[in-house]
Every structure is written in C-alpha cells, then in structure tokens.
Design a protein around this nucleic acid. Structure first.
Lengths: 176, 176
DNA sequence: ACATAAGGAGAACGATCGTTCTCCGCCTTG
DNA sequence: CAAGGCGGAGAACGATCGTTCTCCTTATGT
C-alpha cells in the first residue's frame, strides 16, 4: 500500500466516521482502526487532526459539487434537476444533512474555510442555471431548506416540496 | 442565591457558551466560571452534562416558540410575519443558526429528543397559519432554508428572500 | 458558646483525547 | 549473508474532560 492509497483510505474512513458521528466525537484511533493505516503513517500524511478534517471536507466538496453539476448540465430543466438530484441524495440510507453545515455548527469560528467556499460554489452554480438574476438567492434557500428538513426527517419528500416551489418561481419569472 | 437563581444562571451560561462554541467544545468548568455557580451545586441541580444540555435546549425551545407565536398571532398577514420575525432574529449580533440543528449535527443520534419536538412545534405552528393544507411543508422549507443561509451569511436578507417566495406561494393558493 | 450540618473553592481521579516514542520485524543492498 | 534503515503495532505522554472528594469556612439550633 503506497501513500496515495493510504491517503484515500484515511479520507474514506474520515468521511464515514466524521459525517456519521460528528468531528469531535471521533478520535484519531478510530480513524486508524477504520482505515487500517497505522498512526505513524497517518501523522506523516496529515500532520494534525485539523488537516485531516480540512482534507475530508475539501474532497467531499469537490465530489459533491461535481456530481451535482454533472447531473444538471444538459437536463431539459436544469433548475428542477437540482431538486431531483437532491431527492436522490436525501434517500441515501446514511444521509445526515449537509456535512459543511454540520461542521460549521459544531466548530463555529474554528471551522475550515472550505465550509464557506462550498456554499459559495453552490450559489454560483445556481446563478448559472437561474434564468433571471436574483433567482439564485431564492433557489439557494429552497435547496438549503430541503436539506435541513431532510436532515431530521430523511427521505425525498422535502426535495419534492422544494421542487414544487421552484416550479412556481420559474413560472412567475417566465410567464407562459 | 437560592437554587432557582442558580439554575437560571447555569442555563444562561450554558446557552451562551453552548450556542456560541458548540456543546462538546465547552467543558463543565467553563459553565462554572461563566455562571459563578460552584461545581458541587451544578451537579446537584444537573446530575450530568447531558441533563444540562437537554435543559438548555428545552428552555430555548419554549422561549423561541413562544416568542414566534406571540409575534405572528394577530398580525395582518401571519405567514409573512414569520419571516419578519426571522429577519430580526438573523440580525442579532451573535446569531449562529438554529441551535437545535447545530446540536443534531454535532451529536447525531445522541442528540436529545427536544431537537425533533422543536421542529415538530414549528411545523405545527406553520400549519395553523397556512391558509391551505400542504402549504405548511413548503413554508417550513422556506424558514429552515433562510435560517441555514443566514447561519453562514448573517443578516436579514435571507429572511427577505424567503418572504418574497412566501408571497408568491400565498398568491398562488389565494388567487386575487 | 459549642456541636453540627451545609456550602463553597478547588484539588484529585479515572478516562479519553491528540500526538509522540519505543521496540521489533522485515526488506534492501553490497 | 550481514548490516542498516524503514515501517508497523501499540505503549506512553501530557493535556483536558466529566465527575467526585477534601477541606475549610460559615451559619444554625439549643
């Protein structure tokens, strides 16, 4: 196992454990057990827990944003496709809300900056898709609201309700 | 200082510290320093940290829900008054998102049940105010979405955007 | 006034955390 | 084959946590 695979295993274990149990509740020893990477190597690749947390969030940001972008580009109604993609996300068995919002709530001002860049990236994507300026702010509220509601009541329904609202907003901005 | 005042001081300190820094990041010694109540008395009133956390969330739930209910009952447009009240909340200098969502993100399955009852109470209030059945689910998404967006970008603007969406929804349900 | 109980201040205790160190086996290289 | 260095397994270390205990002051009751 070379360093690159060790890094991947560490990030996989970190993502699984940090997302499920929270960051402060998971010790480095559980990362080691979950990844199979010895502590010595762990600290050579990530010199401190903080850098592992940051790397976990940054990788999740890249994958999440790329997945969403790929799902909506080319769709007949890109704005509505966002909520279809959210519905599928909310239905994953271990869905537990937005990892970045959870990290912000837990760490407060000590949260890594990727928390803000992740939300800025989502806002930028919505601004690309929105047919009217100013609509992106409203769509962001719908997406965040659906995610938050689904965090406590898992399932696709919040995304469906948010999609209905988005349809109304699109009709209002693009009167048929 | 009798036990009742000690309890109030403890809950005040707990609310300030837990809400600002997160629950796991605040030790019992800081609660003691912040409240001026000695550890011995603290543990006589709250036998463990978990019960202090639960009491903090339960008191905040009662106050938050009562404040919101009082602000919207009797308003000319109760549904829209919800978002005006949210705008004022988001503008408080130490606003840091929904305490219950933060606790859920941090503690996961170990979060006290009041997290769910708080969200159920908000949903029930919205169902009282909504002029049509099914609208409450959508209003809940708007309120949660505005709160989430404001948690990372403090200020009243998310509540204003959510209020605009609510106006559109009300017009759609009650065509003039 | 004196015995007694209660309360406060802070030390102490065991557990756990993030991080480092020790020791041992193994693999490479001449 | 021999020597040396690297990596893994887990103990160890200091800090901090939640919780309890000790010790001393203070107030009370007769």
């Amino acid at each position: 196992m070379d360093d690159e695979e060790a890094r991947t295993r560490l990030l996989d274990a970190a993502e699984e454990l940090f997302y499920r149990h929270g960051i402060q509740a998971v010790g480095m020893d559980r990362i080691r057990t979950g990844s199979g990477v010895p502590l010595k190597r762990l600290y050579r690749i990530f010199p401190a827990k903080e850098s592992l947390v940051t790397a976990y969030l940054e990788r999740r940001d890249r994958r999440w944003t790329a997945d969403l972008r790929e799902a909506v580009t080319g769709a007949p109604e890109p704005v509505l496709a966002v909520f279809d993609w959210l519905a599928a996300w909310f239905s994953e068995p271990d869905f537990r809300g937005c990892a970045f919002l959870n990290a912000h709530g837990e760490l407060g001002a000590a949260a890594p900056p990727v928390v803000h860049t992740h939300k800025a990236a989502l806002h930028a994507l919505l601004a690309e898709l929105a047919p009217a300026p100013g609509l992106a702010d409203q769509l962001l509220i719908l997406a965040e609201g659906a995610t938050t509601v689904a965090a406590l009541n898992p399932g696709p329904e919040p995304a469906h309700r948010a999609r209905e609202i988005a349809e109304v907003l699109l009709r209002a901005h693009r009167p048929s």
